[in-house]
């Protein structure tokens, strides 16, 4: 057997590490430094951070962002899990059609999808017009509100989460399910004792990805959100455009910290091995 070259793998990784350092790691370090820099005096301190936590306008915005993101994650995962199970274990024309259709939103550009959603759900939108045909004047009250943002987030994230969970479910053999049925296990038992242990890891991975991509979202809340409170991504845009670079950097770091919490859950879940998995 040829001796394993210990240096070669590192050499092969070198170009991507160099590139990462240049376009990701270096800007992160610079961002953190800028966040401690005071714009007026040029000195260093926590002033930019204090600004966000001593100002009701911004604390409300941060809580508002977290609320929307948490609701998005929980709802997207719940719906996607059910959808993925349905697609995996049902074999009807409807499930086959849905299996092809659910992926469609991923091919529609974000801006187009947001504008499309707006024309449907706004108070003078398609749904309102249809209701007028039947003599009602239905106002969904979803535009410029967190409900609209969450609906739009679900549109973007359900296909993604369903795809990830479906991949995990496809690893379960029909024979394993049949084996449990043979010993007269109920559907709940099949779920808790077979499906859940085999898929929970992918569910968490999907959840962390949804969390991280939504905490910094911009287009949806900018076009569909209320004037106040604002999601963090929109506030960041405003701060940057008005030359408050130190504060913008501090808010970026705050967003980064929230994402890091999600990322550490991701890493923990991935590293951890269940008892039955040891040696697998």
């Amino acid at each position: 057997m040829e001796k394993e070259n210990k240096v070669l793998p590192y050499l092969m990784m070198l170009p991507s590490i160099l590139l990462m350092s240049l376009v990701v790691i270096y800007p992160i370090i610079m961002g953190v430094i800028t966040s401690f820099q005071q714009q007026e005096s040029g000195g260093y301190g926590f002033e930019n951070y204090r600004y966000f936590f001593e100002n009701d306008y911004h604390t409300t915005g941060i809580w508002y962002t977290l609320k929307i993101v948490v609701i998005t994650v929980v709802a997207a995962i719940a719906i996607s899990y059910l959808l993925a199970i349905f697609l995996r274990f049902s074999n009807t024309p409807i499930s086959r059609l849905m299996g092809k259709l659910y992926i469609l939103p991923r091919f529609i550009p974000a801006l187009v999808a947001v504008n499309g959603m707006i024309t449907v759900i706004r108070d003078s939108g398609l749904i309102n017009r249809i209701s007028q045909v039947f003599g009602y004047n239905l106002h969904l009250n979803m535009m410029y509100d967190e409900k609209g943002i969450i609906l739009m987030n679900l549109w973007f994230n359900i296909p993604f989460a369903t795809m990830m969970i479906s991949a995990a479910l496809s690893a379960i053999n029909d024979s394993e399910v049949e084996a449990m049925r043979d010993v007269s296990a109920s559907k709940t038992m099949i779920f808790t004792n077979l499906i859940l242990p085999l898929t929970y890891r992918d569910v968490f991975v999907a959840a962390t990805f949804i969390f991280m991509s939504n905490i910094s979202s911009f287009t949806t809340p900018y076009l569909m959100g209320a004037t106040y409170p604002k999601m963090m991504g929109v506030t960041l845009f405003d701060l940057y455009n008005n030359f408050h670079y130190g504060r913008a950097a501090a808010l970026s770091v705050i967003m980064f910290l929230f994402s890091s919490v999600a990322a550490s859950i991701y890493i923990y879940i991935n590293m951890r091995k269940d008892k039955w998995e040891v040696g697998r």
Partner: peptide, 21 residues
Amino acid sequence: SSGKVVYPNKNQGTMDILASR
């Protein structure tokens, strides 16, 4: 909208709700 005062973002935001009456 939704029982709250809203200032729609962007110049186009208010033009859209004027156009939709």
